[in-house]
Design a protein around this nucleic acid. Structure first.
Length: 349
DNA sequence: AACACAGGCAACCGCAATTTC
DNA sequence: AGAAATTGCGGTTGCCTGTGT
């Protein structure tokens, strides 16, 4: 019962690539008679093929409205968006791409787009950043944050020591780099400030105002979680499914606007509030006797932009390069490596 | 020139869903 | 109502072609 015997099991039925003569026969028959009963069609058309094979050949290759050739950028972005929403529902995806077949889209996804997304560090299944691969980095991020809270990073007295401030700025840079790599995965560093024993330090760490990189609409679309996708699909089921007029999806990954991670300023220390995300704040030039923190590009070795300039990924990369070249980084890295080595005492988290 | 390897793609296979009787 | 037949879908296979050695 149940499953019918597959016509492929019929003896003597040809398999494999179609030859032009077979295509001609199939096309001629369907153009004259249309198609309806695929099982009986091969015999009527004079083909030694099973119905399934005929249907596949017609649907994926011979029917006149098939569109062949390179996928356009627009088609690519549509596929990405729909795949994020629908998963491997190739036929549904194909229904939004006139002239394209589910088989063609599936092949294109598996051979081109999947690879492309992997190269961009995006999981082609979940459309999320591949955070599993970055778990060691995430661990590092948490260790760094907790270390700051406990004054373990660099020299222990963060408030009164310029070297520690340099370390702090370098930590900003590390954190920012991690945000570039995986903006969604790096947590807001202020979440690590609880249980701190140093109120003054709290004010510094609390001024770390991290924001997720604001996604462009198309990025937001592919970042829907499973429940959101479910809601979206349910919603779409009740209305005509209209694709939003997003731009080319790949464009969104080229110019991440980075949020400001930290502002070390007199103002912040006094008020305990952070600066507006996305901007660097005041730059002071000395450490006043009242314990407020001062930072200058000269002492930090890092050339931070002006007070209202929005930082871009390339800015940070430049800073990163300087950081790596900076011989004074050695002590910073030593502190960091000491801290993160297996023999280190565990933190409070 | 010959061989190995990898990538792309058409086609196949098996199952689920739907339709027919 | 339920069995059988048919259609549709998605994963997988295997052939063809291009490229590197």
């Amino acid at each position: 019962m149940g499953r019918s015997p597959c016509c492929d099991q019929d003896k003597g039925v040809k398999k494999g690539p179609w030859v032009p003569e077979e295509d001609d026969k199939l096309t001629a028959y369907i153009e004259k008679n249309g198609y309806g009963n695929w099982r009986s069609l091969p015999k009527l058309a004079g083909l030694n093929r099973c119905g399934k094979s005929c249907r596949l050949r017609w649907m994926n290759y011979l029917r006149p409205d098939i569109r062949r050739g390179e996928f356009s950028d627009e088609e690519e972005s549509t596929i990405v968006r729909l795949h994020a929403l629908l998963g491997n529902k190739w036929s549904k995806i194909a229904s939004h791409l006139p002239g394209r077949t589910d088989n063609e889209i599936k092949n294109y996804w598996n051979t081109h787009m999947r690879k492309k997304m992997l190269q961009m560090g995006i999981d082609p299944i979940t459309h999320e950043p591949r955070i599993n691969d970055l778990s060691p980095i995430l661990d590092v991020s948490q260790i760094l944050a907790a270390a700051i809270v406990n004054g373990q990073f660099g020299n222990s007295n963060l408030i009164n020591n310029n070297t520690a401030l340099e370390d702090l700025l370098k930590l900003q840079l590390i954190h920012k780099m991690l945000q570039i790599i995986t903006p969604k995965a790096i947590p807001n560093i202020t979440s690590f400030t609880t249980n701190s024993l140093n109120p003054k330090l709290d004010s510094v760490v609390n001024s770390f105002t991290t924001n997720s990189v604001n996604p462009k609409p198309e990025q937001a679309a592919i970042q829907l979680n499973a429940n959101e996708r479910h809601d979206f699909i349910n919603q779409s089921a009740n209305e005509d499914f209209m694709m939003p007029p997003f731009e080319n999806i790949w464009d969104g990954f080229e110019d991440n606007q980075l949020p400001g991670l930290v502002t070390v300023s007199q103002k912040n220390l006094n008020s305990g509030t952070g600066m507006m995300p996305g901007y660097y704040g005041d730059q002071l030039s000395e450490i006043p006797s009242n314990g407020s923190i001062s930072v200058s590009p000269e002492t930090s070795g890092l050339n931070y932009p002006g007070t209202t300039q929005q930082l871009t990924g390339s800015d940070v990369l430049e800073d990163w390069e300087k950081f790596l070249d900076d011989e004074t980084s050695d002590s910073c890295w030593k502190s960091f490596l000491d801290l993160t080595s297996p023999t280190s005492s565990p933190g409070p988290w």
